[in-house]
């Protein structure tokens, strides 16, 4: 039998380790939760991870005020309630909140536009952390800037708390469409792409040659139904985040499970039809022309 003591050569917080966890969440659903009880419901419904936050986006939108990192006691309660990975949100640029989350041992930090930004110019230097980060993006340039800062997972921003999938679709189509176009560019055109995207050249060259982002690309923001999940998965999302869509609906448990089943079976409409029955009323939702604050505009 092979024996060795590897205690001294274990490398933690490497790019492979950080991006690796995102790889393992592909095909799954990550659910926003506020309390340990909600986290339990999410895990029971087949979520691959939960996202701890102070209030779901729909409430943040309704209540106004400053939205911050969740109470550490609540996060610990959620960590104790479930065995799946626990993510938590920090404000854009608020590296001290991210340090607290890392100290709490959360599995992923979401530097999120859903919370009130703490810095109007700088995102967190995510390379400085061992805990991996996910960040939102509305276009390819934004995605690559976040990756250059150390993000290990990108999600569309969508428009959180609206129950309206239109912005998530726009962001996904923009990012994935530009990746396809960039793949057609010749080596000289790639320099211009880097300029237009305002993104680091080496990352732009990598996307041009591989035809994909260097990290997993998930979808978030406004998903409310199993069919919404199937839509964005067919458009090319590799997993989905569902926020207010579950716990702001009439009947969270069956809806959460139905969204998990739809995400797994996204190419099979007969299954989506089956799981979509009798779920009760989804969250009411808001049209884009009715909203006061566009969260997607936060982050740069």
């Amino acid at each position: 039998m092979a024996e060795q003591n590897t205690e001294d050569i274990k490398m933690t917080g490497t790019v492979k380790v950080k991006r690796g966890l995102a790889e393992m969440l592909k095909g799954g659903v990550i659910m926003d939760v506020v309390t340990p009880d909600q986290a339990k419901i999410a895990e029971d419904a087949g979520a691959v991870a939960v996202m701890a936050l102070e209030r779901v986006p729909a409430d943040i939108r309704a209540d106004g005020g400053v939205a911050r990192m969740s109470d550490p006691e609540m996060i610990e309660g959620i960590q104790e309630a479930v065995t799946i990975p626990v993510m938590a949100k920090a404000r854009i640029g608020h590296f001290a909140e991210a340090q607290v989350l890392e100290a709490l041992g959360v599995d992923y930090v979401d530097e999120s536009e859903v919370l009130t930004p703490a810095d109007e110019k700088h995102h967190i230097d995510k390379w400085a952390f061992e805990v991996p980060f996910v960040c939102g993006a509305t276009n390819l340039g934004e995605a690559l800037r976040r990756i250059s800062e150390g993000a290990c997972m990108i999600r569309s921003k969508g428009e959180a708390g609206t129950g309206n999938v239109v912005q998530a679709v726009r962001h996904l189509r923009t990012i994935l469409g530009d990746i396809r176009k960039l793949g057609q560019a010749d080596s000289a055109e790639v320099f211009d792409w880097a300029k237009e995207l305002q993104a680091p050249l080496p990352l732009v060259q990598e996307v041009a040659s591989t035809g994909r982002l260097p990290v997993p690309m998930f979808c978030a923001g406004g998903l409310a139904t199993p069919a919404d999940a199937a839509l964005v998965m067919q458009l090319g999302a590799e997993a989905v985040f569902v926020g207010s869509g579950i716990f702001k609906s009439e009947n969270p448990e069956p809806r959460a499970k139905a969204i998990v089943e739809a995400t797994t079976n996204f190419t099979r409409p007969e299954i989506i039809a089956k799981v979509s029955r009798g779920l009760g009323v989804p969250m009411t939702g808001i049209g884009m022309d009715e909203i006061q604050i566009r969260l997607e505009d936060r982050g740069w």
């Binding site: 590897t6 274990k10 490398m11 933690t12 990975p85 041992g105």
Partner: peptide
């Protein structure tokens, strides 16, 4: 947890 994940 994730922060204890490693390569070796």
């Amino acid at each position: 947890r994730q922060v204890d994940s490693f390569e070796t």
